[in-house]
């Protein structure tokens, strides 16, 4: 974990209630896609944990949904700097994904899939991407995934964009075979994905309310087949064979 002051480069709306925040600063604390950062905001006691969408040596991209007062306040910051703890959590293990993994993102769970997809492409893998949203106005990053050269399919619950249905409906429609899968999204989606792909090794990124984000407060504990784990420190990514649903 590093504590870094980042400068805001851009902070723009890219879909309904969804913002893309690009920051300039030292990203060396980030070691794996699927990790998160914890952002201090003036006037709020706790930091806001946001998953990392993408990063290079000096730029950090975060995509977040405005779900409460904190993220709303963040969306109004167009310039200035932010105190951020970086490199939190384990992230996805790209080595476990194999040659043709399936990446699944639901809503606010889509962003970490981008950084993962990019790194898998750099490693020579051929990932398939399935992303799900409620409706067309919620869709983001479809073209960005395509630009990475990944076969990308979109599902919307109301059918207003892509295939009608949940990500599991899209997975069924594609009917392909995969070397592994990685998923991030609401827990019911993760559960449905794990049930849809019972014979493939998966990595699932979970979300929980947390205070510290670095493993000491025990606010985000969950039970796994191998004992209690902290979503913030031992997760957010758990392996499909350890999850207790």
């Amino acid at each position: 974990m590093n504590q870094v002051i980042f400068d805001i480069i851009t902070n723009e709306k890219i879909a309904k209630d969804v913002y893309k925040l690009v920051l300039y600063g030292d990203t060396s604390g980030i070691t794996a896609p699927g990790q998160f950062v914890n952002i201090a905001l003036d006037g709020f006691f706790l930091r806001r944990p946001l998953s990392v969408c993408d990063w290079d040596l000096s730029l950090l991209t975060l995509i977040y949904k405005t779900v409460g007062d904190g993220t709303k306040a963040l969306s109004e910051m167009k310039r200035g700097s932010l105190d951020i703890l970086t490199g939190l959590g384990n992230g996805f293990d790209t080595e476990l994904c194999g040659a043709n993994p399936l990446l699944i993102g639901g809503g606010a769970g889509v962003p970490p899939m981008y950084g993962l997809c990019k790194r898998l492409r750099e490693m020579g893998a051929a990932p398939t991407v399935v992303i799900g949203f409620n409706g067309a106005e919620d869709v983001f990053y479809y073209e960005e995934f395509e630009k990475l050269g990944a076969l990308t399919a979109v599902g919307t619950a109301d059918g207003s964009f892509g295939i009608r249905g949940f990500v599991t409906d899209v997975i069924r429609a594609l009917d392909l075979s995969y070397s592994g899968y990685c998923a991030c999204g609401p827990e019911p989606m993760l559960k449905a994905v794990a049930e849809e792909l019972p014979h493939i090794k998966g990595q699932l990124s979970f979300e929980e309310r947390m205070a510290c984000g670095f493993g000491v407060c025990m606010g985000c504990s969950c039970k796994t087949k191998y004992g209690s784990k902290r979503i913030c420190k031992d997760g957010p990514v758990l392996k499909s064979d350890e999850v207790v649903w």
Binding site: F44, F45, E208, R209, M218, G219, C220, S228
Partner: peptide
């Protein structure tokens, strides 16, 4: 002890509320 069910954390002005339950 595993402690209490989650969510265990809530925020408020100038502080927070926890119910870890002595994990």
């Amino acid at each position: 002890r595993f402690g209490n069910p989650t969510p265990r954390i809530a925020e408020c002005s100038g502080g927070m509320i926890n119910s870890i339950g002595l994990q």
